[in-house]
Structure formats: structure tokens, C-alpha cells
Simulated scan of single mutants.
Amino acid sequence: MTYFQRLIINTLAFISLSVLFPSMFYVNSFMMAIVASIVLSALNVLVKPILHILSLPITLITFGLFSFVINGLMLKFTSVIVGEQNFAFSSLGAAVFISLLLSLINSIIANRQVDRY
């Protein structure tokens, strides 16, 4: 899957998840979803590896479940950078839940892409 396909999938997932869970997650517009998708991809490249290395002991203790919290933190950081009036979560738990759903959506789409060929 190319970078732009992943951006489109994340953008559409942000919009659909904000419609499905309006009390947990808010996206102001389609353009803010695109911006949030770009910011999230930049944070995943620049910040997420550092957080994974720093949290390695707690990730090992929790058998990898702490990586869900790291994904939620990446979404919270995205909301801070984009602006919480445009892209917001009600809590860190909501961000972790949305990140879990976003990961599930991305893995389903990526597996369907592989099965095609």
C-alpha cells in the first residue's frame, strides 16, 4: 500500500469513526482529517520509535499491550498539534480505543490489498 493510499484510508477512517463515536472523537471537517492524517504519519515516523524504545521495559512487562497506549498517545499528540477545536478526543481512553479501531481498519485494508495479487 502506498503512502497516499494510507493517508486516504486514515482520513476516511477518521471521518467515519467521528460519525460513529461522536461523544468520544471529534473531527471538524474533511480538510482537518487530511491534516490530522499527515501529522499522524509524521509523528509515527519521528516520535513513535523513540517512545517504543523508552517504554520497552513496561511493554515487555505488559506483553506488548502498552503499545496500544503509545498509539493512543500518538493520536492525542496529533490532536494537540492540529488543534483540539478541530480534532479532539474526550480522553486518553477514547484515543486508545480509536487507535485500536484505526489499526484494525488499516490491517483489514492492507490484508485485502495483499490478497488481491
Rank of each mutant, 00 (worst) to 15 (best):
I81S: 03
L73K: 05
G83M: 09
L100Y: 10
K76M: 10
Q113L: 14
S107F: 15
R116L: 14
G64Y: 00
S107H: 12
I81G: 09
L73F: 11
R116G: 10
A95K: 07
S90I: 08
A110D: 04
E84S: 12
L65G: 06
N71I: 06
N86R: 09
L102Q: 07
N111L: 15
L73R: 02
I98C: 04
L101G: 03
S90L: 15
G83C: 11
I105N: 00
N111Y: 13
S79R: 03
I109E: 02
V82D: 04
V114S: 13
I98E: 05
R116E: 09
S103M: 10
E84N: 11
L92S: 09
S107C: 15
V82N: 02
F89L: 03
L102T: 08
K76I: 05
S79D: 00
G93H: 07
I109V: 12
L104I: 13
L92P: 03
L75P: 00
M74N: 02
I70H: 07
S103H: 05
A110E: 08
F89A: 01
G93Q: 01
L92R: 10
V80W: 12
L73G: 05
A110L: 11
I70G: 02
E84V: 13
Y117F: 14
L73M: 07
A88Q: 11
L92M: 14
G72A: 12
I98A: 03
F97N: 00
S90A: 14
V114P: 00
I105T: 04
L102C: 11
T78P: 05
A110P: 00
Q85E: 14
G72C: 09
G72P: 03
Y117Q: 12
M74G: 03
N86V: 06
T78C: 11
A94P: 01
Q85C: 08
Y117C: 15
L92N: 06
F89N: 01
A88F: 11
